[in-house]
């Protein structure tokens, strides 16, 4: 047998490393989605009386749109702090499997734990989806820089968009706000469809789409946690069955 062929690395049109990640983020469909979502979050924070620096800090520190919406609406309505913390934490559980799947793609044998703290903090649905799609084309030792560039670009866009939304809160028509609310779920759905290449992904996608609303409608606690575990188990079983039939 001859030596295995060298791995094929398809060059990215925008290069690799930090700068490549920034450019990949700026040209991603998700930039439009993030800007739309954060314009509406900025308007919401303005309407509920939060100061602008608080809004900017919440994007930098929390960096998870659903958690920020919960935080702003619940604190704005005067909910008990413990209940708000619980609601935020439940909505952010998805970050755990995302970080667990992203970090092994970034690591080299020389990577220290502290090198992956920043990419872990920048992980959000949008960053995770785009990183998983693009990182296989990036040379391994340039991946942490690429992920940081991608995340920083999205976060920067979010901060600017939230400031714009805060300033324009009075001028935004209801129709536009509703359209912005539909942008993120639709972009997540289309990206999940695009990234679903193997049966396991398709099974997980379908289980999530159907099971979560059913569980929420039946008022089952921790609906997204059960949805994730059921989707993961079904996908694993589907892959096993497929392998056995082959």
């Amino acid at each position: 047998m001859s030596d295995p062929p060298p791995p094929v690395v398809l060059p990215l049109p925008y290069g690799s490393g930090l700068f490549g990640g920034l450019r990949a983020g700026a040209t991603s469909v998700f930039m439009v989605v993030i800007v739309g979502s954060y314009v509406s979050i900025g308007a919401l924070a303005h309407d509920l009386g939060f100061p602008l620096p608080w809004l900017v800090l919440s994007s930098l520190l929390v960096w998870a749109a659903p958690a920020q919406v919960i935080l702003i609406t619940a604190l704005g309505a005067g909910a008990a702090p413990f209940e708000v913390a619980l609601a935020v934490s439940l909505s952010s559980m998805r970050l755990l499997p995302m970080v667990v799947t992203l970090l092994p793609m970034l690591k080299t044998p020389r990577t220290r734990t502290r090198d992956v703290i920043v990419p872990a903090h920048l992980t959000a649905i949008s960053v995770w989806i785009e990183a998983l799609r693009l990182l296989p084309k990036v040379p391994r030792d340039a991946r942490i820089g690429f992920a940081n560039g991608l995340g920083a670009c999205f976060m920067g866009g979010a901060v600017v968009a939230s400031i714009v939304g805060f300033g324009l809160a009075h001028a935004l028509p209801a129709l536009l706000v509703a359209a912005l609310l539909f942008l993120s779920p639709m972009s997540f759905l289309m990206s999940a469809l695009r990234n679903a290449r193997i049966t396991a992904d398709r099974v997980a996608l379908a289980v999530g789409l159907v099971l979560a609303p059913v569980l929420a409608w039946r008022a089952v606690d921790l609906d997204l946690l059960w949805t994730g575990l059921a989707g993961g188990a079904a996908a694993y079983a589907a892959q096993r069955i497929q392998a056995a039939l082959r």
Partner: peptide, 16 residues
Amino acid sequence: FARAVATAIVTGVVGK
């Protein structure tokens, strides 16, 4: 497995 869990949660958010 974690990837499938994350995918199901993301589309679960969409469904909700």
